[in-house]
Amino acid sequence: MTYNPETKMVGEGVKFERIRRITGYLVGTVDRFNDGKRAEERDRVKHTPVGQ
């Protein structure tokens, strides 16, 4: 884990992991998505649950 002794801060530059599914597989970070899939993931909207 990164530590900056001057500011006494932990984790500078460390990204959140966001697990997402593409094609059926999960990927640990959107950074590894190609450009098309990255855009698709960004555009996804949520669906109203069944019965609501």
């Binding site: 098309g36 909207v45 669906h47 109203t48 649950p49 069944v50």
Partner: peptide, 22 residues
């Protein structure tokens, strides 16, 4: 868009209920 919608899927950005989509 930067992508074509997967196979026969309803476009990901389209507002729809889960029931209708399914």
């Amino acid at each position: 868009k930067e992508y074509y919608t997967n196979s026969f899927h309803i476009p990901v950005a389209y507002e729809i209920s889960a029931y209708d989509k399914i």
